[in-house]
Design a protein around this nucleic acid. Structure first.
Length: 198
DNA sequence: CTACCGATCGCCT
DNA sequence: GGCGATCGGTAGC
């Protein structure tokens, strides 16, 4: 019976994404993301909101970031450095979760073809890399996450999630709004990464 | 292993 | 006109 057992997975509907963005980012760890059946469990995320100087939404709505101010549960896809794509899940009012890494488990042949010559561990270890592996580009911007080609399955991980400081930003670097599945070999950078003495 | 660099687009000042 | 929520290659330790 699919009663109140802890096994039943929560629906990742608008209500899931409408919560505090930091909680959403934490709860997405362990949830499987697929695009046309290709993807796997999310192992690394970052939270951004409109009061956050590091966020695209900090200075208010623009044509690029408009979807961040739209309804929760949609994809915000943008181009970075002129060549790579990054995907976020919107949480309403200018908040969104950047998906930074997943563990590749579904559609392995397709990902291998899209990431030729790259070690499997690195196929989806980074926001640009996972968009390449899953075939995410600007044509998916604004699309709802509860319909194809997107699919979200499973539930937040029961394993340890490590909060750390975010990557690649120059302001608001002190808040621990990056969330990693502890010990995962599929992260873009190990938690607490820094100059590795010793 | 770390460090630097170039690629290349759209947004914001 | 400047600069990013990046990546992959190359050079050097």
């Amino acid at each position: 019976m699919e009663d109140a057992s802890q096994e039943s997975a929560p629906r990742l509907d608008a209500a899931f994404f409408a919560r505090d963005v930091e909680l959403v980012a934490r709860d997405l760890i362990g949830v499987s993301l697929t695009v046309d059946g290709v993807g796997g469990p999310i192992v690394e995320t970052e939270a951004y909101d409109a009061r956050d100087p590091a966020s695209h939404s900090f200075r208010g709505p623009t044509p690029r970031n408009a979807v961040m101010f739209g309804p929760p549960g949609h994809a915000y896809v943008y181009r970075i450095y002129g060549l790579h794509w990054c995907v976020n899940f919107t949480c309403g009012h200018g908040a969104a979760v950047l998906i930074r890494a997943i563990e590749p488990t579904m559609g392995m042949d397709e990902m291998r073809a899209r990431r030729t010559g790259v070690a499997e561990r690195l196929w989806c270890a980074g926001p640009g890399r996972l968009c390449e592996a899953l075939g995410i580009d600007g044509s998916l911007n604004r699309l709802p996450l509860d319909r194809p080609p997107f699919a979200l399955h499973g539930r937040p991980t029961e394993a340890m999630v490590t909060p750390t400081r975010r990557v690649g930003i120059s302001v608001a670097t002190e808040v621990a709004w990056r969330f990693c599945l502890a010990g995962s070999p599929y992260l873009s950078k190990p938690p607490f990464a820094g100059p590795s003495k010793r």
